[in-house]
Design a protein around this nucleic acid. Structure first.
Length: 120
RNA sequence: GGAGUGGCCCGGGUGAACGCUGGCUUCAGGCUGGUACAGCCUGGGGCGGGAGGAAAGUCCGAGCUCCACAGGGCAGGGUGCUGGUUAACGACCAGUCGGCGCGAGUCGCAGGAAAGUGCCACAGAAAAGAAACCGCCCCGGUUCGCCGGGGUAAGGGUGAAACGGUGCGGUAAGAGCGCACCGCGUCCAGGGUGACUUGGACGGCACGGCAAACCCCACCUGGAGCAAGAGCCAAUAGGGAGGCUGUCCGCCCCGCGAGGGACGGACCGGGGUUGCCCGCCCCGAUGCCUCCGGGUCGCUCGCUGAGGAGGCCCCCGGGCAACCGGGGCCCUAGAGGAAUGUUCGCCGCGCGGCAGGACGCUCUGCCGCGAACAGAACUCGGCUUACAGGGCCACUCCGGCG
RNA sequence: CGGGGCGUAGCGCAGCCUGGUAGCGCACCUGCCUUGGGCGCAGGGGGUCGGAGGUUCAAAUCCUCUCGCCCCGA
């Protein structure tokens, strides 16, 4: 176990995939925001953090939405094991469609940093 | 060389690191059944696969799936020159006719206006089956200003459009009144599968426009859509399925009777016949009997390894072509809160600047910037729309040189 | 996947079905009224009718294609 590649992996178990899970986090989670992003955080009993993304059609067409999700997933993949075990739902506001990759990365990174500080 | 027309193609390449996804294989752990072993789940390793020309819009057509369907009529919807291609189409090809263009070409919802109804604003006398405002001509009257009656439709004027056009003859003035040509209609002959076309004869003109107005005619048309649909099935709740039973009348049977049962008809209410009607079919408040299954979340299948109405700037044959037949080669991803990504190099492409060779076309080097439109969601055939940059082919017109 | 609606002046809407003049309210400008402002009265300006093509003598209106926005159902 614990192969070298697992440090930056992003397996299916680290994703929120059920509508019920999304609704639970959105109703009971704590709300944070940074720029074009809104995050809802709920502590979990699982071993690691899990991420779910919500990017509606207000953000842009399919290409723009996919780009936003891939960028956010990439940031989360790099820092996943450094995060406390929470369930995290990130909602992209319409401004996220027009944001550059650097802006989105910075916004999500600051969100993750405040999360890590709060858990200590 | 310049201007243009039509069509086709490409849609960056390569390497490394870290990731994602589904297939095959292998290892470890667990569960079920268990003799070997098989199946499933979780995690790791290896191998090879992983967006488009439009995947988009969802404007048409089909496959596939489920539902409905005795039959008849009416409605609704769609298409609309002809012939063909196709699984099918509103698509495509070829042609006909008409518009535009010198031309290559291009555009066209392009049936019927003597089946009927309706509309044609303003202007104009008159907007559809006739009429006569200014006129022109004749006759009568006259106070010489003109008035009355009749003929006419050439000219003026209005309008988008005025009941064939031009010319000659003719006439009181005129008029298809007569003639020639053109247009129109009918008939005949030739060509063509056909739309249509060519020629001739006859007719003296009848049929203004609008059907992307209602409509008529011809042909086509059941509804929904992979969240279709099929299977397994937790918690919770306790229901779900099947059969009988409505009211009245007639008649028959059983019974002493109350009553019960069978048949036929009518009626009431509800439902089905996925628009309506006829017709047809089913059901009945309460209650009784029999059976144990129905279904939500979730999961699996449908779903893409085997079939594809699949591609080929491959070949052969048929056809003007769309396309068809045969052979060869090749391709084919399968997610499910939804993968195909991120970072860093090198090469290639375009634009701009600088320097050098060079009259110029252009070549070399360096630097900077840029690289679009857009993401599979059951699968195909079309159409439409978006798109940085690049390449190829055929043809037309104009100019120059030989 | 399927269905519906909207786009007309700076804003909110009529007009479209049944073709011929684009209009209403608020806002804007000018004048009157008032010491001044508001209110009120009178007058005025302003619209490629989302875009392209077509039918027609004539199109906001009819037809076709297209762009954008909003809503609904499974």
């Amino acid at each position: 176990m614990a192969a070298a590649g697992a440090a930056e992996g992003f397996p299916r178990s680290a994703r929120i995939r059920k509508r019920a899970d999304f609704l639970r986090v959105q109703q009971r989670g704590k709300k944070l925001s940074s720029g074009p992003l809104v995050a809802l955080v709920l502590p979990t009993a699982g071993p690691t953090a899990r991420l779910g993304l919500t990017v509606s059609s207000k953000v842009g067409n399919a290409v723009v939405r996919a780009r936003v999700k891939r960028l956010l997933r990439e940031v989360f993949r790099r820092r996943r094991l450094a995060c406390p075990p929470v369930e995290l739902v990130v909602i992209a506001r319409p401004a996220a469609g027009a944001a550059t990759a650097a802006e989105l990365t910075a916004a999500f990174s600051s969100l993750l940093s405040t999360l890590q500080r709060a858990s200590r």
